[in-house]
Amino acid sequence: MRRTLFTPEHEQFRQTARAYYLRECVPYAQEWERAGMVSREAWRAAGAAGLLGWQYPEEYGGQGIDDFRYNVIMAEEMAATGAVGIGLGLQNDVLPSYLAHLTPEQRSRWLPGIVSGETVCALALSEPEAGSDLKGMRTTARREGAHYVLNGQKTFITNGILADFVIVACKTDPAAGRQGISLIVVERGTPGFERGRRLDKVGLKSQDTAELHFDEVRVPVDNLLGEEGAGFGYMMRNLPNERIAIAVSALSGANRAFALALDYARTRTAFGQAIGTFQANRFALADMRARLDAAQAYVDTCTMALVEGSLTAVDAAAAKYWTTETAWQVIDRCVQLFGGYGFVNEYEIARIWRDNRVQRIFGGTSEIMQEIVGRSLGL
């Protein structure tokens, strides 16, 4: 279907993104999946190509472009090229709204490395007993003079092993509830800050996801992000960006799965004819195409609302819920069309199936999204 949200400048950026993924990521897909993480060289190459931190001012190496359509292109091209997961999305989609609260000194200290790819970032929110319920976190930071002293642990942290710079959500005033949550930056090498296990996940094998531990970690007060006690508000304001980014990623994976399935249906034969010519398969492909077109129109509309500043948290939750569920239905049906080959790990369709399952979980589960939308209906 014809899309109208991209300009010639966006399409030029798309060519740069595609070239980067094909050159710097696709050839190393299997190697990275075995290693459980991507190379630092891939991050630096992304920075050199201008594919990191374009939102930030030119004085820090960015391009001063605040337009989520560029984020959409990055996700679409990663899927379309068959590149495996590299955590650029976290750094480009999620962190900019957090880093908008940096002081001038913090910007000078951290942004150049983030834009160049020398500094890999992580966002440490989830805990073993506090996933979607962020108010239930137990990590604390007590003030001692010019330092905060952090104690606690985090889990499911994207880029957790590679990260040089971790934004940690913690309670600076445990008695104040959500008003007592702050965000503090902990840097690699800080005494008491340890990486735990690299988690052995079902999918997204190349994207390092880890446990983090904080044992009497002394961090300068200057590493506070924004205002003390304002962390929960920062997290809530960022959710529309994060959830639309997840919707885009899920849909991009589904579009790639459909393209692979369509090609397979045209070339794979059974009983003397292409399997796509059997009515059951032809109708299934037609149904998937219609679902993907509807999802694309929905996500594009939400993307423009985000760009224009009119996307609400409820709209983002609804889009995240419906798109990830639809994408999963399409991808699972594509695997079915591949038959036994769809269940063999060396086939890309199997990887897409594994990688996409988590889209219905992270960023808020489908059930949480339904709860948000349901409450907005006065129920």
Results as ranks from 00 to 15, higher is better:
residue 38 V to T: 15
residue 38 V to A: 02
residue 38 V to N: 10
residue 41 E to T: 13
residue 43 W to P: 00
residue 45 A to Q: 11
residue 45 A to G: 02
residue 46 A to R: 03
residue 47 G to Q: 02
residue 49 A to I: 06
residue 51 L to Q: 13
residue 52 L to N: 00
residue 52 L to W: 03
residue 53 G to N: 09
residue 53 G to K: 06
residue 54 W to V: 06
residue 54 W to P: 01
residue 55 Q to D: 14
residue 56 Y to M: 00
residue 56 Y to N: 02
residue 62 G to Q: 08
residue 63 Q to M: 13
residue 69 R to S: 11
residue 70 Y to L: 10
residue 74 M to R: 11
residue 74 M to T: 10
residue 74 M to S: 08
residue 75 A to H: 15
residue 84 V to T: 13
residue 86 I to Q: 12
residue 88 L to M: 14
residue 88 L to T: 10
residue 89 G to C: 05
residue 96 P to N: 11
residue 98 Y to A: 01
residue 99 L to S: 00
residue 100 A to D: 15
residue 100 A to T: 11
residue 103 T to S: 15
residue 106 Q to F: 01
residue 107 R to D: 07
residue 108 S to N: 10
residue 109 R to Q: 15
residue 111 L to K: 07
residue 118 E to Q: 14
residue 119 T to L: 13
residue 121 C to L: 03
residue 122 A to D: 06
residue 124 A to V: 06
residue 125 L to D: 06
residue 125 L to A: 05
residue 125 L to W: 00
residue 128 P to H: 10
residue 134 L to N: 04
residue 135 K to G: 03
residue 137 M to D: 05
residue 140 T to N: 04
residue 144 E to H: 11
residue 145 G to A: 04
residue 146 A to P: 08
residue 152 G to D: 01
residue 152 G to M: 09
residue 153 Q to L: 07
residue 154 K to F: 00
